[in-house]
Amino acid sequence: MDQLLQTLNAILNSAISPQTAALAIAAIGLNIHFGYTGLLNLGQAGFMLIGAYGFAISIIGGLPIILAIIIALVAALIFALILGIPTLKLRGDYLAIVTLSAAEIVRMIGRSSILTDITGGSNGLTGNQYRSPFTSLSFFGDGHITVGPWSYDATGSNGWWFIATAWFVVGVLCLFVWAIMRSPWGRVLRGIREDEDAVRSLGKNVYSYKMQALILGGVIGAVAGIVYILPASLQADSMGRSMTYFIFTALLLGGAATVFGPVLGAIVFFAIRLFVQGIAGQFIPSSIMNGQQTEQFAWIIIGITLMLVVIFRPQGILGNKKELSFDVK
């Protein structure tokens, strides 16, 4: 029973943690790519990494936080241009392979020993190297606040200030996505997702729209990177290919091409993991499955969940099957 409560508690904590918010933001960005436009971006973690490095390095270099954020977003914009120019005129698989590769390149460069002075190499950068300008913006005071089942420091890392900001960003982005996707702009994207040639025949510049979508989703990915590292540290390997896969899993769980799908998906993603881990930890004797193995077991379940969702409920929890266009050309 204790363990059950513990599991429940862990799930509740993860549901509002800034890391969950970061995953949700990354999934919102990917939703613009994949859900609405049909762009198969397999390098969303690369955009996160670009944003994270852009932000952290700028802060460490002594720039004000606003400028650091702008640099991070512009870096992601340039990254999107670099990826989009050679691939957006080609078939979808090429974008997939190039984004996947480029994200890996970013990670490899980030963790390379040559750049240790700037990026911290494979050890990365610790949070307190870049966190303080953000912490000092807090108007939450120094105390300890308890809301319902949640109890955190007001401002300290992983505290309410981080949580509130992260979810505020999530909220703003949801509103933004809702606004642009109900607009004629969003309509063009949905048209492209289904049939580029049809949209082209109507005089819309498909290439330009795809590029806009790629940039927008990528820049949101960079925001996710910043949110992700603020309460934690920046390590290149934590934003590798697995991260992209997890973002995809979250997005598809919640429902691609829906406004709240990515958010719900991110929460459910962590909940499933913790739930499986907790249950396995409690009910399966450790002689059969030790602590480490319960964690791996949870990941196996995540992988299988992704398979099952895509096969049996490709529209996810919130999606509408009639509107989902899954195939990318």
């Binding site: 198969l40 979808g92 997939a96 697995s242 896969y245 995809f248 899993t249 598809l252 193995q293 791996q296 077991f297 990941w299 196996i300 995540i302 992988g303 299988i304 969940t305 992704l306 398979m307 099952l308 895509v310 096969i311 490709p314 899954f326 195939d327 990318v328």
Partner: peptide
């Protein structure tokens, strides 16, 4: 094919962690 591709991603995750397991 996109759907199938994502299924293979899921399979890949499941297999990787199975090996680790």
């Amino acid at each position: 094919t996109t759907q199938l591709m994502i299924v293979t991603i899921g399979l890949s995750i499941a297999l990787q962690y199975s090996y680790q397991y």
